[in-house]
Design a binder for these strands. Structure first.
Lengths: 141, 141
DNA sequence: AAAGTACTTGCAACTTAGTTGCATTTAGTT
DNA sequence: AACTAAATGCAACTAAGTTGCAAGTACTTT
């Protein structure tokens, strides 16, 4: 658990008007240090024991989500994955790339796609989300 | 349960070398008649009683998936949604639009996006999936 | 048409991921 | 130091999907 990330976590929480409780700081610090979207269980595994209760982690993620500090990345699994909202604009987040061979997910922050145009007919497109699938450098022989 | 769809379902199953059992034909017929991705429960609700066992429906969907007749549409819910694979190319399916107000999902078959280019670095992009979010005609006042 | 067999189905029990209610604790305030 | 709203932990619950196994059925072979 990096000190720098804890410090940053405190600042973000303060800014968002959320209490800086120990579990909340720790969860946010994990997300600050993560290079890919994390599930509640993955976060729990990275916390220094004694880990907070499962329910607490879910509720912390909910509060972070509510204040817009993190958001859900929808991957091809049933489980929810969370990541910092900081790299994303109002209308879209970076694409996520999942390797069909090893299953690992990478954040493709260097890719920015043009916003899809509405087909008319009364549809207003506000956000778009892109998932990519293929072979990652490790698996691309 | 439309006769035409049952007929079409039989043909597809035959073509895919899957046994044309009563539950399988019925499930596929529902998907043939659906205008948006369906969950296992939604499918079950549309079957003429006596509905097949929950487990059976999951296994049928699995077999259809395995033979490439249907695929999963990843929406912003935990639950899996299935739809016919027929409208889709190798590299992408039509985008799905979910209304942030009423929650309904629409298939945007009229939209086709250019394929995202790989950022290099050894990544090979094989498929892309796009989710859209905004207001649907009903909710766009 | 009967028999055989591999594929399917149904049932019960289980797992995973997330939720709810309530009593206890704690961060930030007075 | 006392107060209070917010946060936490625990136990019990729900939703969605899975597994093992016995019984049934579609298609094949004779």
């Amino acid at each position: 658990m990096n000190r720098l990330e804890e410090q940053k976590a405190r600042e973000l929480l303060n800014y968002a008007n959320l209490r800086r409780t120990r579990p909340r700081v720790a969860v946010l610090a994990v997300l600050l240090g993560a290079r890919r979207p994390q599930t509640a269980d993955e976060i729990a595994a990275k916390l220094a024991p004694p880990a907070p209760n499962r329910v607490t982690i879910y509720r912390i993620l909910e509060s972070l989500l509510h204040e817009g500090l993190v958001h859900k990345a929808f991957l091809e699994e049933r489980t929810w994955h969370f990541e910092l909202a900081s790299n994303c604009t109002e209308s879209q987040c970076h694409p996520h790339f999942t390797c069909t061979n090893c299953g690992e997910t990478n954040c493709m922050t260097e890719i920015t796609l043009p916003m899809t145009k509405s087909p008319g007919k009364g549809f207003v497109i506000q956000r778009q989300r892109v998932q990519l699938e293929g072979l990652c450098p490790k698996c691309n022989v």
